[in-house]
Amino acid sequence: MSEPLLSVDKLEVVYQRAITAVQGITLSAQQGQIVGILGTNGAGKTTLLRAISGFHGTDDARVTEGTIRFKGRRIENIEPHRIARSGIALVPEREKVFPNLTVAENLLVPAAPGLVLAERKRQEAQVLQFFPKLEELHARTAGLLSGGERQMLAIAAALVAKPELLLVDELSLGLAPVVVEDLAARLVQIRRELGITVLLVEQSAAVALEIADYSYVLENGRIVLDGDRARLTNHPDIQEFYLGQSSGKRRSYRDVKQYRRSRRWYG
């Protein structure tokens, strides 16, 4: 295989010089892939994305071990705006749009500096073809949008910067299943038409496994399982603990304990 677009090697992240949130994660994303990161609350998913997109002074977090390479260049502990300009765009979990700015202004902020108006308009139009609804909401203040519209705007604003790697933190969080279905389909369409690589962090395994080519399962800051769609959807532990499909007969307590023990061998 050729060199991956993004490769994370034995990454360790420490908050406030004391709390280790991610310990020794190794993963990679090939050009044009959709890569899923599954895991429960506190597994370290968001920390992983934040480490890739760059920590801010007030985060009080640092990559203490390991490397992150993007297009072969090391990017750990670099200021977020530099990482953003190198071609990585993040759709954050919470503060994802500027609430007091209009939709149009939100789309204007990330555009590369020094672009002529026509070029910028063309880029914006290209992004808006995926989200025609935003066109109607152009003059609306972003704080007044619904959750789904806000997510669309966040993705659109990330795309305006013409990234090669799109990081999406919790596509489905707080949204109705129909909306999530729609957004997931758009993401697949975006990948197909723009050829960008997507790293998708999800609590909902069903959503991630449906669109991701390859997925990693994170628990307690470590990768405990990884594989392509077929392997993970058929994996008994994933079916049991992430998809909630029990295989008919109820599992005994001993099996669960066995699962917990087996997880420790990864990492």
Partner: peptide, 24 residues
């Protein structure tokens, strides 16, 4: 203004502004 809008954005959410490529 381009920079004016950036200033407003940075004032609202410095972190998101940085993630959107604004040099704070």
């Amino acid at each position: 203004g381009r920079w004016g809008i950036r200033m407003r954005a940075a004032g609202q959410s410095p972190l998101l502004a940085a993630q959107r490529g604004i040099n704070l």
